[in-house]
């Protein structure tokens, strides 16, 4: 039923053994195994990639879509409620992104570059860091990978401006995540990537469910503040670049 992109296919070989492995990873993650935890993250990304691939029938387009979906996911962190399920939500974003791309006729519009006819088996690396060396359980690593990919794409790609914006966005997200302390970040990542229920995160980090909720809501508040601070800075700069007035103060209202 699903046409899987080649890159993702090895990860998803054999649905049954997959389900069993997932069960095992959850078990191990529960007992505090970080390796298993990273494995869960990889799988969720692979699932998203599979979905995007089946919708677009194009491996690279699928990669793009998942990347964009992840960016979108980051940018909308502030609107995530405690009860929302990350995977389902990411899938919805992937779906929307895919449909949008397809409606527009793919990333290249009506023109498909020559290489994309050559099938999925291109050998030349599309990015500085290849997907194999990325630790998908680590936000820093993921962001670094995505950013360097975007940079590479801006050098080779058809729309350098868009790629540059993406690179800057990714660096922005990276900067945002840095405002959290280590523990907040870990809990945040566990929720964000692992889609683990707060009770499991609590036992993973040796805290209470209430503690997890507190940490998550603190993290979200911090991220929101940081996002706003950065975007206001950019807004003010943009106004300056447009030559808009810097300062205007009317007479104070009476009484």
């Amino acid at each position: 039923m699903e046409v899987l992109p080649q890159a993702a296919a090895p990860l998803l070989n054999g649905r049954e053994s997959m389900a069993e492995r997932e069960k095992e990873w959850v078990q191990r993650a529960r007992s505090g195994d970080r390796e298993a935890f990273a494995e869960l993250v990889r799988m969720h990304r692979a699932k998203a990639l599979g979905l995007a691939g089946s919708l677009t029938k194009d491996e690279y387009l699928a990669e793009d879509i998942v990347q964009e979906a992840l960016i979108r996911a980051f940018l909308h962190l502030g609107t995530l409620t405690d009860n929302s399920r990350f995977a389902a939500w990411l899938q919805r974003i992937v779906r929307n992104q895919a449909y949008m791309k397809l409606r527009r006729g793919g990333p290249y519009g009506n023109e498909r570059p020559f290489e994309s006819f050559a099938g999925g088996k291109q050998e030349q690396p599309r990015c500085v860091t290849d997907a194999e060396s990325v630790d998908w359980g680590d936000i820093d690593s993921i962001l670094f990978h995505l950013a360097s990919q975007a940079q590479e794409a801006s050098k080779n790609g058809s729309n350098p401006e868009q790629c540059l914006i993406r690179k800057e966005t990714l660096q922005g997200i990276h900067m945002l995540i840095r405002c959290l302390n280590k523990r907040e970040r870990d809990i945040f990542e566990a929720r964000f990537f692992g889609e683990l229920p707060p009770s499991e995160i609590a036992s993973l980090f040796g805290t209470t469910t209430a503690g997890v909720y507190n940490s998550l809501s603190r993290s979200r508040a911090k991220l929101q503040k940081e996002r706003i601070r950065i975007s206001i800075g950019l807004y003010v700069e943009r106004r300056a670049a447009l030559g808009l007035p810097r300062r205007k103060i009317l007479a104070p209202p009476p009484n």
Partner: peptide
Amino acid sequence: PVPPDKVEKVMALVQSSIDRGIP
């Protein structure tokens, strides 16, 4: 929490009103 794009729009609304001389 207000998304950054909306924050900008609201700020622009306030500033354009002040630019026209009305708080």
